[in-house]
Design a protein around this nucleic acid. Structure first.
Lengths: 176, 176
DNA sequence: TAGCTCATGTAAGGAGTTACATGATTGA
DNA sequence: TCAATCATGTAACTCCTTACATGAGCTA
């Protein structure tokens, strides 16, 4: 149940409403744990029911905005979870299935799609590198800054790997 | 629906029963699209219902073994799918959530778990490299061999990346 | 004949995706 | 006042996970 713990983390950083969380996810934790607003609302309701977070209705806001904050029980749960056993990350990669399939049948034109992918990975890479330059170019970082930087670097390296892979795939597909 | 297409690919390579497929998955396509036998049986039943594959009951075998093979409609479906639009692969990485969480709370001991992870990634890496040495050390590979090699190399590079990341994470966590 | 392995499933639940629904406030 | 936007949700579906169920041949 990583989403609930990702939400606890985000709420400790800054108490927020569901929609604010959804927006922050899109440019932060969501880079490595994507979530839609539907998921987030459902999960917040569950966390509230379990008394891990609590909500205050915000007066004078649009809609019926609720501001969530983490309760001690939620903080304890997060701490427990961080130290828990870490399952091995399995790759589940549709592109590799496609290439494997392409090896057993007549190969239909694939290069266009892969070029599109390469472009998208490139865009993400540039975005992450911009964040790195903005937030982590200074010296003497604290430990939590170092941890955040590490997580960002994981994203950068992943996108570089993918971009490079797309290029290799294109090269192989071109050799008729 | 990548699982169904992964199964079609595997069945084109070699018609098999459900259990045989499950075992082959564990040391082949399952490296990048993991699946349990329950998933595989369910998916095979669905593919049979849709007339993409057909089964023959194997006489003289244990249990009630059924041998599946791909029908022309299944082959056509696979070809169509290979050329279809490829969604961007999103990372969904529990370890990164943990490290991000560790940055906002008092860090509990994490190094042990990460060392365990590093060890598991190392094992996978060694396995993949052994497969590479066994199957892809020759020259003059055909196009489909090159594609299979490419897929394997993606696995190797991914495990190297992860292993390296674990080492970096340990280094940051050590600096108190 | 009892236990092991081969072989195929069922059931229940967790998690993510997609499409749609609803109410409140702001600004043109 | 009406459309856009903020804000919170429901519903239906697919897919994956985990645990359990069942039957049939093989072998001691």
């Amino acid at each position: 149940m990583s989403l609930s713990h990702a939400l606890l983390t985000a709420l400790i950083e800054c108490p927020s409403s569901g929609l604010e969380l959804a927006k922050r996810f899109d440019r932060s934790i969501g880079y490595f744990w994507p979530a839609t607003h539907q998921q987030i609302y459902r999960e917040l309701a569950k966390l509230e029911k379990e008394k891990l977070v609590a909500a205050k209705i915000v007066a004078g806001a649009r809609g019926r905005k609720k501001n969530y904050h983490v309760l001690p029980k939620g903080r304890a749960e997060l701490k427990k979870w961080v130290a828990a056993s870490q399952p091995l990350l399995l790759i589940r990669d549709e592109l590799l299935v496609r290439l494997r399939a392409a090896a057993v049948i007549d190969v239909p034109p694939l290069a266009g799609e892969i070029k599109k992918l390469a472009h998208q990975h490139k865009e993400k890479l540039v975005l992450y590198q911009a964040i790195e330059a903005r937030d982590f170019s200074g010296h003497k970082m604290t430990k939590d800054q170092k941890l955040r930087h590490l997580v960002l670097k994981a994203g950068i390296e992943f996108e570089q790997l993918r971009l490079n892979f797309c290029k290799q795939a294109l090269a192989v597909l071109k050799t008729e």
